[in-house]
């Protein structure tokens, strides 16, 4: 099986630790993952901000770069949802519907790849901490990941998973929304942070670093003492712990 990693531009640039964790985790499970270096960005930022043509160009680039792989693993709910939810529509206009029909069904979120393709929930991880999980909007309502991340976390040795109140509410990031509507965005994040602190968790986990950057930036500003970690980083952790903190 030829497996490619779509790291996403945000992870590539700002959170390389997440990419390394995916590589470590998949190798531990016997999957040799490839990194096609021609990859850049899925086009989500451009499309969602109203720069559709650029979004279409980047979508076409994505399907070219990842053509021929049996699976493409994405450690980001929103980039995964961009590819799966919006590419078919963009491809119809851009005239590359066949390429999209070929590649897009092979694009998996990390948790889908682990559970649906590899058939594992216990990935042999060890992480002795109290963790709460934020499902993120696009993982939840775009990719419909359901309880997959929770099932993976529940199998991690030593990990105590505590439920997050109003988990399904948006953290207020929304890409350029956070810049265009800073007051509403901050109010949404303020409520999210209060719910996180109420759980008493040491670590906030999610499957999307963009949301974690937003919530983590607020937690850090408030000196709340809760750190944020991508799901891949927790799943890659073994004894002795080497989970990367930010």
């Amino acid at each position: 099986m030829r497996v490619a990693l779509f790291i996403t531009c945000v992870n590539d640039t700002l959170f390389p630790g997440t990419g390394k964790a995916v590589v470590t985790l998949l190798r531990r499970l016997g999957v040799d993952v490839d990194f096609p270096e021609a990859q850049t960005c899925c086009g989500q930022m451009h499309l969602n901000t109203g720069y559709r043509d650029e979004g279409v160009r980047l979508a076409r680039r994505f399907v070219d770069v990842f053509a021929g792989y049996d699976a493409v693993v994405v450690p980001s709910g929103s980039c995964g949802a961009m590819v799966r939810e919006h590419y078919p529509r963009l491809a119809e206009e851009g005239g590359f519907a066949a390429a999209v029909a070929e590649t897009v069904p092979k694009v998996y979120d990390l948790s889908e790849f682990l559970i649906d393709v590899l058939g594992v929930t216990d990935v042999g991880a060890h992480f002795p901490h109290k963790v709460t999980y934020h499902p993120t909007c696009h993982s939840l309502r775009g990719l419909h990941l359901g309880d997959r991340p929770a099932r993976l976390l529940q199998e991690v040795k030593g990990l105590e998973l505590v439920p997050l109140p109003a988990a399904e509410q948006c953290c207020g990031f929304g890409g350029t929304f956070a810049v265009k509507n800073p007051d509403i965005s901050a109010a949404m994040c303020g409520d999210k942070v209060r719910n996180i602190l109420d759980t008493g968790a040491e670590v906030l986990c999610a499957a999307d670093n963009s949301c974690l950057m937003h919530i983590g930036g607020t937690l850090s500003r408030q000196k709340a003492g809760v750190r944020v970690m991508h799901l891949a980083e927790i799943l890659a952790s073994t004894e002795p712990e080497h989970g990367e903190s930010r």
Partner: peptide, 21 residues
């Protein structure tokens, strides 16, 4: 508007793709 209430993430020394190479 971002930094009014949030810290900016630290930029890493090396990107994922440079690490890979």
């Amino acid at each position: 508007g971002w930094t009014d209430t949030r810290d900016v993430p630290a930029i890493p020394k090396e990107s994922f793709r440079d690490w890979w190479t």
